[in-house]
Design a protein around this nucleic acid. Structure first.
Lengths: 145, 145
DNA sequence: CCTTGTTAGTTACAAATCCAACCATTACCA
DNA sequence: TGGTAATGGTTGGATTTGTAACTAACAAGG
């Protein structure tokens, strides 16, 4: 019989963070997957372009901290689906600007509403002050380093 | 030109949770990967067995909310590495009990120390009350439903 | 110019994941 | 009993991911 001990896995922050992150992503994931047939990385790209406007792939890489091969493939899929258009820069022909097509914009606007509504249901579990503190702490924990 | 808008992706809780979870897993991940050559799911199985003692694969599935094929394959790897031993139940021969070998126990104990130390560095970013609240909120967000 | 180094983005191949179908065993129940 | 359903766990094949190597374009120094 292997001994038990007192290390509390249930209190290990990375564990708690992962469980909460997974659970909180699940419901929303179903929506964009079923409704638009896109995956998480594609959703993230879509949202970055929708929320911040035209930008290059490497800007998304930096801001979202997703590996560039994932971005590259997500962009390909979004272009195939006619959600995103690419345009090569004249200044520096290595980079290309990405922006949402009208179709992509419509999808984004729809999903943004769903996301905002879902966020409200999560917020509703706590008081305003608690939510504000939670966000601040998560931001701090998410900083690189 | 695609319009910008005011949806604040940076405040979207699932997004913040994912960023924090990823960042907080990264450093510890390097340790168990480099030191013992195991992946995240294998680490989770190891920790469940170490922290709670002998149990079946499906118990881990339920408790850790990881898909059973992932568990199945992680257990295979851990058995290959001689970290885990399986023993078929006499009562119900479909299920088999899993427990750590002395080798697995040693790895667990080592990693538990690393995990605890790492947890303390995360905690150190905040006050005690804040950490307690964070844990409570994460637990709440991680509940299924 | 020419070399060397850097950056933007893609691709190839191996490893890991997901989903569905699949045994084997046990439970239910007419 | 016998037939059907449910459970524990594994396997196969398509999809995704990770890592590294790659192309193409620019930058900087001689």
């Amino acid at each position: 019989m292997v001994e038990k001990d007192d290390f509390d896995l249930q209190n290990f922050l990375p564990y708690l963070l992962n469980q909460a992150a997974e659970e909180s992503s699940l419901e929303f994931q179903q929506v964009y997957k079923n409704k638009y047939g896109i995956l998480r990385t594609e959703w993230r790209v879509l949202f970055h372009l929708g929320a911040f406007g035209e930008m290059t792939a490497s800007t998304i890489v930096t801001r979202a901290r997703i590996h560039k091969t994932k971005i590259s493939r997500a962009v390909q899929k979004l272009v195939e689906k006619r959600f995103v258009a690419r345009e090569r820069s004249e200044d520096d022909r290595r980079q290309e600007f990405l922006r949402l097509t009208p179709l992509g914009l419509a999808a984004y606007k729809d999903l943004r509403e769903v996301a905002a509504a879902y966020d409200r249901t999560l917020e509703a579990k706590f008081s305003e002050e608690e939510v504000a503190l939670l966000r601040a702490m998560l931001r701090r924990l998410g900083e690189r380093g």
